[in-house]
Design a binder for these strands. Structure first.
Lengths: 246, 246
DNA sequence: CGATGCTATTTTGTCTACAATCCGTCACGG
DNA sequence: CCGTGACGGATTGTAGACAAAATAGCATCG
């Protein structure tokens, strides 16, 4: 059946299975990861309906696991499940996005403190190396998707070395939505991407000083650029932003 | 089928369905709420296995909706779903609980700011009234469950008047786990409960001053008493705390 | 006596079938 | 011409049956 079900690889960072870790990932989980990837990559757009049978046919499974997966995706705030009407990709309003950035700021501060406290020197060095490795994707000529993947990957590793599954899970649900909104940044081809990489570099440097207060400021600087741009576009375009998600 | 499926009423506060709001709550959601209630109230204890057929028989439904419900509960970090081995109630370690309190503190600060900004005067008065109404449950002779319900109810209303579904959903997942840990407070029958009510009263007063900084301090004071007690018990008893969850 | 491998039972994972509900369409009447 | 209500197709909700895997118990062997 599931030759079409190749594991995502990017989202996996936030999927912590604390104990068992059996070799075979449950099909429902795989479908959920795949659906969230498809939504964030633009295969489904905000407001789109997701039909169970369509997903089942596309992935070569039956509707049972698909329904379980939809519950997972709903819990991650990417879809809404309305009784007898099915699943629909959420339409985030300007207020939603503002609140998500609020949450991100507060939770990122926690992550920064934990990383400073708990990450090893080797891990912080590896983090800095990853920042450099992903830096090329900040090239304005590259598609937004690469920048998105890079940020998601860096964030995921940062959560990992913070050594708190609960913090990682909580903030993971939030940043997934935030980075999804980064798709609207297609509309602005400014030097924003280069600035973003510079803030990541600064964060990597500050983390190695083990200064919690400075780390909090540095990690919030990372999101500041994108936050301003994303909110600006939302304010200008209103609900028309959804056309940018194709 | 579902005469046994009476709606919980307490958890409902965190279950936001943004648009549709059809009259009939999906069975899977009802089962999930019921399972989470059962776990927190001690029907299932940490480490207990939850068999699908048992749940299905007990609630008078088939295994399909139960499986969907288990995915929801797993996303709320109350159970772990291990492939081919089923669902098991999570065993929170001391580290887990510490991290959850960290998260709570950070997120409660956000809630305090939002409540100060967004709640109406009438809502803040109603909040103060609810604090007084629930005050009797702080009576040391009452069971811990009542104190737990009271705190959960007050928290839920506070999240509601903060007017941010995303913040409410995010912190809801965390405080559910935190208040679950309050069960260990059976072991200490100190004057903790009366102190707790006094911190709630103080929070209600401060919110009405619309002072965000003071509100942050006040809301963190609410959890401080229970946090210290809970962590103390965890440190003293180690894994033996699980015996307190019956 | 203890360890190991086999077998029976239990439990989970998935699929198929059927019932309940919704949505678009069209006929009908005002 | 427009609103209203019924019909049919499509989609979701649930149930039951079957396959796959794990657990427990027991017999066997060292």
């Amino acid at each position: 059946m599931g030759s079409t079900l190749a594991r995502s690889g990017i989202m996996t960072l936030f999927a912590r299975r604390i104990v068992g870790a059996s070799r075979s990932t449950p099909v429902a989980d795989q479908i959920a990861q795949r659906l969230m990837r498809d939504i964030i990559r633009g295969h489904y757009r905000p407001g789109d309906r997701i039909r169970e049978q369509e997903v089942a046919d596309r992935l070569g499974v039956s509707r049972g696991p698909v329904r379980e997966a939809l519950q997972i995706v709903e819990q991650n705030s990417l879809i809404e499940n309305v009784p007898w009407k099915g699943a629909r990709v959420v339409l985030l309003t300007l207020n939603d996005v503002e609140d998500l950035f609020l949450l991100t700021a507060a939770l990122m501060a926690v992550v920064a403190r934990l990383a400073v406290q708990r990450a090893t020197d080797a891990e912080l060095e590896k983090f800095a190396a990853r920042v450099e490795a992903h830096a090329p994707s900040a090239d304005p000529s590259r598609p937004t998707q690469e920048q998105l993947n890079a940020a998601f990957g860096l964030g995921g590793y940062l959560f990992e070395i913070s050594r708190s599954p609960h913090v990682a899970a909580t903030i993971g649900r939030v940043v997934r939505l935030v980075y999804w909104q980064h798709r609207v940044l297609n509309a602005v081809d400014a030097k924003w991407r280069a600035d973003a990489v510079e803030t990541w570099r600064e964060l990597a440097r500050v983390l190695q000083t083990r200064d919690a207060a400075r780390a909090e400021r540095a990690i919030n600087a990372v999101d500041r650029h994108s936050r301003l741009q994303v909110l600006k576009i939302h304010r200008e375009l209103g609900t028309a932003v959804y056309r940018l998600f194709g």
